[in-house]
Amino acid sequence: MTGKTHITGGIAASLAFAQITHYDPVILLGAGVVGAILPDICHGGSKIGRTFPMLSKIINTLFGHRTFTHSLLFLILIGALLNAVSVNEAVTAGILVGMVSHYILDMATKNGIKLLFPLKITVRFPITTKTGSIAEYAVFAALSLLSVYFGYEAFSFYF
């Protein structure tokens, strides 16, 4: 999936999560976007990979793309790290929700992800698509609509 689809997925997921929690939707939203792009730190051409090129190169050299940073192990480590440094609970939740949305979207691609890393098992959905395809644009459009819906619900108390 492309960066814009991951970002939109993170927005939709974090705003949906705001519906069932007491967390501030603004914090969840910002953290959800960060979490949605974080797993692609292993890819130098990604939005986050271009922001941190040296870190991206090191991670890619050590693990490759869609392996460690797309795994449950990485998700748990990030959660533990955020809890250890006493980050706001809403920030931690938003980042983790964004990461999960990223994993789900990448499982819908032909290459899938190594969700159970270090096991070399590829996890993907039975029906997949290519990155940048018309099907991805349809997913992007659906996530955009969900973002508007959940955003209206999450921020309705401001109006």
Rank of each mutant, 00 (worst) to 15 (best):
G98Q: 07
L116Q: 09
S71M: 08
L116M: 15
F150E: 01
L72S: 04
E153S: 12
S101C: 09
A31H: 02
H102P: 06
K130M: 09
K110L: 09
I134N: 04
F74D: 00
T69Q: 05
Y158H: 11
G64F: 03
K47Y: 11
S86A: 11
V139R: 02
G132W: 09
L73T: 14
K4W: 12
I27R: 05
Q19D: 08
V100C: 06
H70Q: 11
G79V: 05
M107E: 06
R50M: 12
S156A: 13
H22I: 07
L55A: 15
V26W: 11
I41C: 01
G3F: 06
I78F: 04
H65R: 03
I113E: 00
V26A: 14
E153Q: 15
A13E: 04
S133K: 10
T128K: 00
A93S: 15
P126N: 07
F150W: 11
S71A: 10
A138F: 12
H6L: 05
T131L: 07
G44N: 13
A84V: 00
I59D: 08
L28S: 04
S101R: 04
N60V: 00
M99L: 10
V97K: 01
H70R: 11
I59Q: 04
D106V: 01
A93V: 06
F52K: 01
T128Q: 08
A84E: 06
I11V: 15
M107N: 11
E136R: 02
A154G: 07
T51V: 08
T122L: 10
T5D: 04
A141K: 12
T8Y: 04
A18V: 14
G32V: 09
V26D: 00
H43A: 11
V123D: 03
L146G: 10
G49Y: 06
V97G: 00
S56R: 08
L145I: 15
I104A: 13
H6Q: 14
I37N: 02
A90V: 11
L62E: 00
F68A: 14
V26I: 14
S144Y: 14
V26K: 11
A12L: 10
L75T: 02
L75H: 01
I121V: 15
A36S: 15
K120D: 15
G64P: 03
I78Q: 05
M1C: 14
G10N: 12
T61L: 02
I48Y: 08
L145F: 15
H102C: 05
V33M: 08
P25F: 08
A142S: 14
M1V: 14
A142R: 03
L119N: 09
A138T: 13
M54T: 13
H22C: 00
F157I: 13
L146D: 05
F125K: 00
F140M: 07
F155E: 13
A13D: 01
S147F: 09
